[in-house]
Nucleic acid binder design. Structure first.
Length: 478
RNA sequence: GGCGGCGUAGCCAAGUGGUAAGGCACGGGCCUGCAAAGCCCUGAUCCCCGGUUCGAAUCCGGGCGCCGCCUCCA
């Protein structure tokens, strides 16, 4: 058993993971801003934190996982100006901000459930923790970290020497060519809003009273305030997409370390890389696949996306192409078939014989969550011609709590898929007539006629599949 | 301008000093009248150049190419 090692963004190194409190792990993952459905890139981040959690649970640790729901405070344009995205969506849909947030929060939960992400222990909403956020802002104000300008209360990053630490920022060089929107009165380019004042004459759907006047919290504030409430002033792991490190997480660190006087606030910062969409940039207008529903509409099982995710390491950009997701779907289907077959075995396995495989699987994940290597073990077991079926069954089902691929229900899932395929067979007088003709030819062993009919139908894009209960047909690509 | 990542078989993707995991596709085989499904078998010396080393995909230097972030984008 090798020790658990994770890569930590702050120290830019792989370190042995030890919970701050033996046996217990506190995890915080940056969640969705609920103004639109999550896309598959968001889903990768979610799957990453879920895999991490499942692995820690399998290690016997008690995990408290917090994922926030950002239902206020995101602005449409750059800098700290522009319209709130949720408010914009609400206006567009003719609904309230709460309705928009509620709807997309549900979509986020449904999508997560569809890919078997375990529900977090806490799923706090920013709007339900305004007092906590104000309390933190007051601490920061008391510490002299904030200053007030026309549109809000800002954090003075020059008061926090470690500001650039997490993302290893070069603030000098960065300011030179960055497209940083200029906010009148900011002391440093990196300074950010902790509390924004409601604009005079503009009535927002979401605003609250505060010691500094009516307004709303800055985006970064919620994560600092809610994590301390549910995980304490220091905790073990904070996850998120790699893009969050330079701004969002950097600002969270500034607020939390200055507000609570702790360091390091978070023991391990773990960031997942992006999905590489290649030339087909994700965009609704181009009609490119980007949400889980889009995949489902194309006949991709949500869990095939989870299988796809497990095939690449979380810190590598993963190329998402049509061919890649299709091949994942095929691989997943076959793996399910193998497990479904093994489920019928009633023999007892031999734990000693299984041990080496369990260890390889576990050690791959202990090695900075190397899922691809763990999957290689899965296939070694699935297709082993030396391991008895009982051991293969025990091993694969033993991996399931970490994989989350639904292998424990493989038999039922395969049966359901078969039933769905049955329903997909179509009927049509003309084609069914030709099929009957072909059957007659087959019965007479007139293969030439039989094949001619099939070829003719194939030319029309119709595929015939023979089965014990007779021939069926469907349109290709359906 | 700054920060970061990548370039391994047709595609996806592990592998950070000792003679290249795994998945998908292709090809071959079994099965099937044929086909589909399923099962089995089969493939690479690691972008280029130079260096370090007994030995490098793995370390160093220099190229070329690609991607992300620096905008409240995961």
């Amino acid at each position: 058993m090798s020790p658990i090692e994770f890569y930590d963004t702050r120290t830019r190194s792989r370190r042995v993971f030890e919970p701050l409190e033996p046996g217990r792990v506190g995890m915080y993952s940056c969640g969705p801003t609920v103004y639109a459905p999550p896309h598959i890139g968001n889903l990768r981040s979610r799957l990453f934190s879920d895999l991490l959690k499942r692995f820690l649970l399998a290690e016997g640790l008690a995990v408290t996982h917090v994922i926030n729901i950002t239902d206020v405070g995101h602005l449409v344009s750059d800098a700290d100006e522009g319209e709130d995205k949720i408010e914009a969506a609400a206006r567009r849909e003719g609904k309230t901000a709460e309705e928009i947030a509620e709807h997309f929060t549900q979509v986020w939960r449904d999508d997560g459930a569809a890919v078997h992400c375990l529900p977090p222990e806490h799923n706090p909403k920013a709007t339900e923790h305004i007092p906590e956020q104000i309390e933190l802002a007051q601490r920061l104000e008391a510490g002299g970290y904030l200053y007030r300008i026309a549109d809000g209360l800002y954090f003075d990053t020059s008061r926090f020497p470690r500001y650039a630490e997490l993302a290893h920022l070069d603030l000098e060089g960065q300011a030179e060519g960055a497209r940083i929107g200029v906010v009148e009165g900011k002391r440093n380019p990196a300074d950010f809003a902790v509390w924004k004042f409601a604009e005079p004459g503009v009535r927002r759907l979401q605003e609250w009273d505060s010691p500094w006047g009516r307004g709303f919290p800055g985006w970064h504030l919620e994560c600092s305030a809610m994590s301390v409430r549910y995980l304490g002033e220091r905790f073990d792991i904070h996850t998120g997409g790699i893009d969050l490190a330079p701004v969002h997480h950097t600002n969270e660190v500034a607020q939390s370390e200055c507000g609570y006087g702790v360091h390091p606030w978070v023991n391990f910062w773990m960031h997942n890389e992006f999905l590489d969409m290649g030339s087909e940039k994700m965009s609704k207008s181009k009609g490119n696949v980007k949400t889980l529903s889009d995949l489902v509409a194309r006949g991709i099982d949500p869990l095939a996306f989870r299988f796809f995710f497990l095939q690449a390491h979380y810190r590598q950009q993963q190329s998402f192409t049509d061919e890649a997701i299709q091949s994942a779907a095929t691989g997943f289907r076959r793996l399910q078939g193998i497990v479904a077959e093994l489920a019928g075995c009633d023999d007892a396995g031999d734990p000693d014989r299984q041990a080496p495989f369990r260890e390889r699987f576990r050690d791959a994940l202990a090695d900075d969550l190397n899922a691809p290597r763990a999957m290689a073990v899965v296939w070694d077991v699935a297709r082993s011609d030396t391991l008895p079926a009982a051991d293969r069954r025990d091993l694969l089902l033993g991996f399931e709590p970490v994989l989350g691929l639904g292998l424990d229900e493989a038999k039922a899932r395969v049966a359901a898929a078969t039933a769905r395929a049955e329903e997909a067979w179509e009927q049509d007088p003309r084609i069914d007539g030709l099929l009957a003709e072909r059957q007659a030819a087959r019965a007479a062993k007139d293969w030439a006629t039989a094949d001619r009919i099939r070829d003719e139908l194939a030319a029309d894009g119709i595929e015939i599949v023979d089965s014990p209960s007779g021939p069926r047909w469907r349109r290709k690509g359906a």
